[in-house]
């Protein structure tokens, strides 16, 4: 059974139909990519999944459970974490604190545990600290733990966002243009990183404009144009699809 299913999901903003009757399955353990020209509705799909918007029609089903109408924090608790197209780190918290916040839904300390600094809270925080360090090593940021997130260079901010998302122990990770604005060397490293995240058992839904990256790591690619799906399949087939070439690859990629 698919881990995530969108079933004829539509979303309109006033007169504009940003996503139109989109159906899409993400199998557990796979890397699925969502591509399409600017304004095609890709980020809106993420926002529909994580509860920023509610679908006008259709259902979002995750691990057999309907997510429509859930708030972002509930979607997170259900096992979906994400990154943002325009980076949204906690700018004036440290790199380490950012990843600690990412664990929020997995930590159990109650208010009084924190206020009284009980043994439970203290042990839990120590473990959270260790886990944050481990994740920062995983994305290669272990040397920057005490920097303000704000002060990291762009490429590192993108990786910090990924570490923060992984800290929530998601089953499904949504990555919105993780390679945007990074140089070719960083893109290769990112491709490796995404693969190793999948190898940790996390399923990935990826939005990306860089075709080499998408074609290199995706198990399946879905192509959106004006909110509608115009093609789907393995990367090689999608690449040769005339509608895709016309709508997307034709426009300069």
């Amino acid at each position: 059974m698919a881990l995530l299913s969108l079933r004829e999901v539509s979303k309109s903003f006033g007169g504009l139909i940003a996503v139109k009757e989109l159906s899409l399955d993400v199998e557990p353990g796979s890397i699925v990519s969502l591509i399409g020209p600017n304004g095609a509705g890709k980020s809106t799909v993420f926002n529909l999944i994580t509860g920023i918007y509610e679908p006008t029609h259709g259902d979002v089903v995750f691990a057999g459970r309907r997510l429509n109408g859930l708030k972002p924090n509930a979607v997170c608790a259900a096992g979906i974490m994400r990154t943002f197209q325009n980076i949204r780190l906690f700018a004036f918290m440290t790199v380490l604190e950012n990843v600690m916040v990412g664990q929020h839904a997995r930590l159990k300390a109650a208010v009084w545990d924190g206020a009284l600094h009980t043994r439970f809270a203290s042990n839990e925080d120590k473990a959270a600290d260790r886990k944050a360090m481990e994740l920062l090593e995983f994305v290669g940021l272990e040397a920057y733990t005490s920097f303000w997130a704000r002060n990291l260079p762009y490429g590192m901010q993108r990786r910090l966002e990924i570490a923060r998302a992984l800290a929530g122990e998601p089953q499904l990770l949504l990555l919105d243009e993780p390679a945007a604005g990074t140089n070719p060397a960083e893109k290769d490293a990112l491709m490796q990183l995404v693969r190793s995240i999948r190898d940790r058992g996390v399923t990935i839904l990826l939005i990306e404009h860089d075709m080499r990256l998408v074609m290199g790591i995706s198990d399946e690619v879905h192509v959106l144009d004006y909110g509608e799906k115009i093609a789907q399949g393995p990367p090689q087939a999608v690449r040769r699809n005339p509608r895709v070439i016309e709508a997307y690859l034709g426009k300069g990629a």
Partner: peptide, 10 residues
């Protein structure tokens, strides 16, 4: 720092 991102952290 960022309320929307905070909500996405659960």
């Amino acid at each position: 720092e960022d309320e929307l991102a905070a909500a996405h952290m659960g």
